[in-house]
Amino acid sequence: MKIMDILVNDAVILNLGVGSKREVLAEMAGALAKVEPQIEADRLLEVLQEREALQSTGIGDGVAIPHGKMAGLDRLVASFARSPEGVDFESIDRQATHHFFLLVVPEHSGGQYLKALARISRFFRDAAFRQQLTNAETQGDIIRAIAEEDTRL
């Protein structure tokens, strides 16, 4: 699986507005819903918040992978957002979160979900990749960084 096959380029957010955890999720859900007709922003926000209530998806190293299941979706979709200032996402290492990779999965995604998680985790484990995202000046820079990592790994 390639990340570029599931990434919705137009939903990538270069700079999130400074905000709370909920505002980050709402902004990302809104951006994705705007370009992805199968997704309704309010419903996605609700699903994401339900998941966060179980355990924060802020997994440390400045990275969060908010995710949720949506009925009626016919494939995995993903987006990315960056917060230069950092957000308190209640991450497990209690550090601010800068990189958000959103994953929305169909109800019966089988092994695809685990594969997508593993692949994006490999990307983010690489400090050079995180630095590239930090240095990005345009939405295009971010998409290029992800596409390059997709080719490299």
Binding site: I59, G60, D61, V63, I92, G111, L114, K115, L117, A118, R119, S121, R122, F124, R125
Partner: peptide
Amino acid sequence: RSVLSLLSLAAG
């Protein structure tokens, strides 16, 4: 102790 590392194992 690294979630990123654990996830990257893709352990089904």
